Simulated scan of single mutants.
Amino acid sequence: MSKCLYLQNSFFYSSATVLKKVHLNMKGRKSADQRWLVRQMSDPFVKAAHSQNYRCRSAFKLIEMDEKYSILKPGFSVIDCGAAPGAWSQVAVQRVNSTGERPDLPRGSVIGIDLLHIAPLEGAHFLFNQDITDANMHTVLQRLLPQTHADVILSDMAPNASGFRELDHERLVSMCFSLLELAEKLLRPGGSLVCKYWDGASTHKLREHLTHSFRDVRTVKPKASRKESAELYFLARMFRKM
């Protein structure tokens, strides 16, 4: 189970119950796990995720980026890569009106993909136990997209950490390149791509390829991304269909 889901299932009760749960869950745990639990309980984005019914604090990363750059609009079709546990999909569903809750606005669509299971979400079509880097998935997605093309590709996915920074960096950059291949097949001209990366030796190469395919490429570090985290996001807009 992911830490987001673990926290969501285990700790969000009354304040007294939370503190009791934290104390009980400290027993027998490694010091690193204890530090993680304490940090989570003092994190304002974790608390906000609970109060606003988001599945994970990462929702606020996308909310901040969208409010600043207007990535998601009613009627848009969105592909959410590495979607579990579904927090980014929740944000996308709300902002593209994929439930049709606002009949006065165009109705969009959200497709989420992950190797992990994702709990159902109204307004989203989830493909779990599926690998977005598999080229066969491109055909599946094309059939599912209302206009056979997406307006936005989102990715908060990352490989399991190996403990070797440069290796993890290269693996994540490789994932980002697979998203570029996905964009070439499924992203409409003028569309946007958001992808997480960890800075390293291949960052420049990835930026060059993004700049070749998009008119506007910038690096973003949302406030909800912890300061100590190495994660950054490339926001690439105005896709140039080759």
Rank of each mutant, 00 (worst) to 15 (best):
R95A: 01
G86D: 02
P74S: 14
D114R: 01
D80F: 05
T99D: 13
G75D: 08
L116A: 06
F76L: 00
A124C: 13
L115H: 01
L115M: 08
I71M: 11
G123F: 06
F126Y: 14
L105K: 09
L72Y: 07
D104C: 07
V110S: 14
L115R: 03
L121C: 14
G75H: 09
P120H: 00
Q94G: 12
A119I: 05
G100R: 08
H125C: 06
V78K: 11
A84R: 01
I118P: 00
P74N: 12
I118V: 15
I111G: 04
R95D: 15
S70V: 12
A83V: 09
I118W: 00
I111H: 03
I111E: 03
S109K: 13
Q90A: 08
P120I: 07
D80Q: 02
H117T: 15
N129W: 09
A124Q: 03
V93R: 04
A92V: 04
R95C: 02
R95M: 03
L116T: 02
P103W: 06
V110G: 10
A124Y: 08
W88P: 03
D80H: 02
V91G: 11
V78Q: 01
G75L: 06
I111K: 04
R107P: 06
E101Y: 15
E101H: 14
A84C: 00
P85E: 05
N97Q: 11
C81K: 01
L127V: 06
L115I: 04
G86E: 03
I111T: 08
K68S: 05
V110P: 05
A92K: 08
